[in-house]
Amino acid sequence: MEQYQYIVDILSYVCIGIGIFFWFWGTSHLTKNRSVLFKLHSLSVADTLGSMAIVFGLLLKIPSEWPLLILAIISLAIWNTMLGYVLAYCSSTRGDHD
């Protein structure tokens, strides 16, 4: 049991590390001179996946708080995706219709 705990700990740190790497990778696109939609794509992918990786790492680390962490993963997956769509819609259609 002891060595399993050790492996799970390392796995959780690896997950959190991957998540933070994703954050840096996605946010670094924000500094470049590209279009809003390109930035939105990389940022929403990186933020959502990175945050989900971090929450998954925390889930491995502290399984006792699982309902909260599962709820966080679900709301990240749903709301961040939807926010990405809404931002893309609002920033691209400049008074063409509606």
């Binding site: 954050w23 996605g26 946010t27 924000l30 809003v36 930035k39 939105l40 940022l43 929403s44 933020d47 959502t48 945050s51 971090i54 929450v55 925390l58 680390k61 502290i62 708080e65 962490l69 966080a72 990240l76 961040n80 926010l83 931002l87 609002c90 920033s91």
Partner: peptide, 25 residues
């Protein structure tokens, strides 16, 4: 550009929430 700022805002808000999560754990 306002929309670039909105992107940064959404990024900041999700990052701060994750930080609160880490602290809570």
């Amino acid at each position: 550009n306002v929309w670039q700022k909105m992107l940064a805002l959404s990024s900041i808000s999700s990052k701060t929430t994750m930080m609160i999560f880490i602290v809570s754990v």
